[in-house]
Amino acid sequence: MEQLINYILQLADSNLILTQRNAAWCGHGPILEQDIAITNITLDLIGQSRNFYQYAAKLINESTDTKVTEDSLAYLRTEREFKNLLLTEQENGDWAQTIVRQFFYSVYQYFLYEKMQHSRDEQLAGIAAKSLKEVTYHVTWSGEWVIRLGDGTAESKERIEKAIIELWPYTGEMFLPEAYEISMVSAGIAPDITLLKNEWYKKVTDIFEEATISLPKDGFMQTGGKNGVHTEKLGYILSDLQYLQRTYPNATW
């Protein structure tokens, strides 16, 4: 049970942290229409993470004596308890960096949910099937921006290539399973993420080719996020995200 809970929290946390990052664009997008687009995507992501948190809270409450809610999972856990992918906590940077981060994550989510909709766990299968439609659009949207920036002006190309080099070391973690993921795979609940790697590479390569960008060489990959070992950036994100509940416990509005 604990491994299933960890697995669900990892799915929820990646979405929540990327939501918090993307939300910083709200009101600051490069143009009104794109401000709305990234905010829409962000709302999709937090909707998905709420589904995961609610499910995790239910399992935690059923299996232990505690009383947690989706809110306490998001607002009252510490940095080491968060299992989000390192990719999702990386800085917004410029528009290119935000786009590349979203594109890498959306393509990963797409192949993950595509498999997860056949999970033996009905709840996860349901969430995945519902989320897949949203994610399909996120892949299209972010992919088109990769093409626009890569095949755009000299400056946009330079910026997106810089963003890709910056974020590439955080892509390997998506396909390296932690112990709780491996046990969920053998239980027929989680898709085998090592098998998603080829599909992910193919999609990214296709879009990069259209964008006239070359794939970076496979180099050193950062890991640890899924086990609670994060880059220094997560602490700052959580202090923003959790400030209100930490300072005024149980505040509502």
Partner: peptide, 17 residues
């Protein structure tokens, strides 16, 4: 109405807006 760089982006923006 809205702003977009080309038709494909206009359709996506329209979807979002």
């Amino acid at each position: 109405s809205l702003h977009a760089a080309d038709a494909a982006m206009a359709i996506e923006n329209a979807r979002d807006v």
